[in-house]
Deep mutational scan, measured.
Amino acid sequence: KKYKIKVYVKDKKTKKWKKIKEIEVDTKEEALEAIKKLPPNYEVKIVP
């Protein structure tokens, strides 16, 4: 079972969220580790 991490950042001009990358991992633990490495201003969604 794979997890997709969708990473969004808020556009300063439009104030809208835009997706900047998608990370695919195998476990939820890996997903949480990957999220920890991202800057705090990123919004993250984990999709099972």
Rank of each mutant, 00 (worst) to 15 (best):
K1W: 11
K2Y: 10
K2Q: 14
K2W: 08
K2L: 11
Y3G: 00
K4D: 01
K4I: 13
K4T: 14
K4R: 12
I5H: 00
I5E: 00
K6V: 14
K6W: 10
V7F: 07
V7Q: 00
V7R: 00
K10I: 13
K10D: 01
K10R: 14
D11H: 06
D11R: 04
K12C: 06
K13Q: 11
K13W: 12
T14H: 06
T14E: 04
T14M: 07
K15Q: 15
K16G: 04
K16L: 09
K16N: 05
K16F: 05
W17R: 03
W17A: 02
K18V: 08
K18C: 03
K19P: 04
K19E: 08
K19Q: 07
I20R: 04
I20Y: 08
I20M: 06
K21L: 10
K21Y: 14
I23C: 04
I23N: 01
I23D: 02
E24T: 14
E24M: 13
V25P: 00
D26F: 09
D26A: 11
T27A: 02
K28P: 11
K28E: 14
E29T: 07
E29G: 06
E30H: 06
E30S: 05
E30Q: 13
A31V: 12
A31N: 00
L32F: 14
E33G: 06
E33L: 09
E33N: 10
E33P: 01
A34M: 14
I35G: 02
K36F: 04
K36C: 15
K36A: 04
K36W: 04
K37P: 03
L38G: 01
P39K: 08
P39T: 05
P40C: 05
P40E: 08
P40A: 11
P40Q: 12
P40W: 06
P40K: 12
Y42Q: 08
Y42M: 07
Y42W: 12
Y42T: 13
E43Y: 15
E43S: 13
E43P: 07
E43M: 14
V44Y: 13
V44F: 14
V44N: 03
K45Y: 07
K45H: 07
I46V: 14
V47T: 12
P48R: 11
P48Q: 14
